[in-house]
Simulated assay, not measured.
Amino acid sequence: MKIITIPVTQFMQNCRIIVCEQTQQAVVVDPGGDVDKINATLTQHNLSLSAIWLTHGHLDHVGGAHSLREQHNIKIIGPHKDERFWFDNLPMQATMFGFKPISAFYPDEWLVHDDTVQVGQLAFKVLHCPGHTPGHVVFYQDTQSTVIVGDVIFKGSVGRTDFPKGDSKQLISSIQAHIMTLPLSTAILSGHGEDTDVDNEKATNPFVSGQFG
């Protein structure tokens, strides 16, 4: 497995291209914008894009998804259906976050906890982790010891819960149940900032330890 990280939008959101090196098939996770940059990276690496996976419906994570879907004739998969609220309100989000106007669009498939999504020969387990948003999901690949977590947890911090339908207690519960129970060596690839791992966050993240939150 190869993962290419492309920071997109003014929020420097970590869009990830996941590549199955056996097949050269790829998916893009959370294409928040800068579609030309994403397409250029796909071309540079001679990759075939097979799907778009979304962790949640905030605009800095989904803003380029509809354009990529139309250009590549592929499906948008995820997040959980409880995230529909944020897709309904994409035009409002553009105003709130200072993005260009955007019309509402929706995934082709919603996901539920314990679903499996696949790119080439790589299978990822879907874990529903509400709190930052109600329908947030993460993607876990066990043999590669990697979890793509969107805005659930960051190095030394956790996702905001002051947006509509955020819930701080629910977020910490999701992290404790579904992230901190993964093997200590599991790499945590967050939607913003540096990568980390479960071991480091257990030892140093004050929200996980209970010091905050």
Rank of each mutant, 00 (worst) to 15 (best):
F139T: 11
H66I: 06
G63F: 00
A104Y: 02
H132A: 07
G120A: 09
P107T: 04
G98F: 08
Y106N: 08
T95W: 15
H80M: 02
L111M: 13
A104S: 13
H72V: 02
G98D: 02
Q71M: 07
S103R: 15
P91G: 09
D115V: 13
L122D: 10
L122K: 06
M92S: 14
P101R: 14
W110M: 09
Q118F: 03
H136A: 14
H80W: 02
N89Y: 02
P101S: 14
R84Y: 03
D114E: 15
L111T: 08
D88K: 04
G131Q: 04
G64V: 00
G131V: 02
R69Y: 03
F139S: 09
K75C: 06
P79D: 11
Q118E: 07
N73M: 05
Q118M: 05
F105N: 12
T95S: 15
F124V: 08
P79I: 03
M96I: 14
G135W: 07
V138G: 13
I76N: 01
F85A: 07
V137W: 12
F87L: 12
H80F: 01
E109C: 10
K81N: 06
A94H: 03
N89W: 01
D114V: 10
D82W: 00
K81Y: 12
R69H: 01
T95C: 14
D88R: 03
F87E: 12
Q121R: 08
F139L: 13
F139A: 14
D114P: 05
G63V: 00
T116K: 13
G63N: 00
L111F: 11
H72I: 05
L127Y: 13
Q118A: 06
L127I: 11
Q93D: 05
H113P: 12
H72K: 10
V119R: 06
D115M: 15
S103I: 13
V138A: 15
D115A: 15
V137Y: 11
G63D: 00
E109A: 09
V112S: 15
H66L: 11
L122W: 11
F97I: 02
I76C: 02
H128A: 15
G98P: 00
V117E: 07
F105D: 13
G120K: 08
I74T: 01
G78P: 00
S67G: 04
G78M: 02
R84G: 11
A104R: 04
L122F: 09
V119Y: 10
F124I: 07
E70P: 01
H80N: 05
Q93V: 08
Q71D: 05
V138W: 12
P79G: 05
A123M: 09
E109Y: 09
C129D: 10
G120T: 04
C129W: 07
G78T: 02
V117L: 08
A94W: 10
I102V: 15
H66F: 07
I76S: 02
L122T: 11
G64D: 00
M92G: 13
G78C: 01
P130E: 12
L90E: 08
N89Q: 13
P107M: 12
D82F: 03
V138Q: 14
V112P: 10
H80S: 04
H80C: 07
H80I: 03
Q71C: 08
S103C: 14
E109V: 10
N89D: 15
P107L: 10
